[in-house]
């Protein structure tokens, strides 16, 4: 039984500028396997957003999060599907998921 959730996170549309210009990250998120009570049992997108904000975001968090959720104007796709049809914040991440953040707030 694996006690890590492995996912891929990608940033596009200017979102990468807030993450040190990194466009792709492979994350291994700790999952509670019974012995370690500190890790969450499961990860939702909301948890991932918080985790990215706390651990990976390099500058201007206000361009990424707003009142504990994603800033309006940032699009999220999970495995190339709009998170708006997947339950948004409450979507439960599965092993191998690819989560893409695209900013629409950056100009040309």
């Amino acid at each position: 039984m694996s006690n890590h959730l492995n996912i891929i996170v990608e940033f596009k549309g200017g979102m990468e500028l807030l993450f040190d210009n990194v466009t792709k990250k492979e994350l291994s998120l700790p999952v509670n396997s019974g012995e370690d009570g500190s890790a969450p049992v499961e990860w939702t997108i909301k948890d991932l957003i918080n985790h990215l904000k706390e651990k990976h975001l390099k500058e201007r968090p206000e361009l990424f999060v707003n009142d504990d959720s994603i800033r309006p104007g940032v699009l999220i796709l999970v495995n190339d599907v709009d998170w708006e049809i997947l339950g948004e914040n409450e979507y439960k991440l599965a092993d191998g998921d690819k989560v893409l953040f695209i900013s629409t707030l950056h100009g040309g």
């Binding site: 596009k12 549309g13 200017g14 500028l17 900013s103 950056h106 100009g107 040309g108």
Partner: peptide, 9 residues
């Protein structure tokens, strides 16, 4: 897959 440039001035 159209490639565009996005940054801030």
């Amino acid at each position: 897959k159209l490639h565009y440039f996005s940054t801030e001035c």
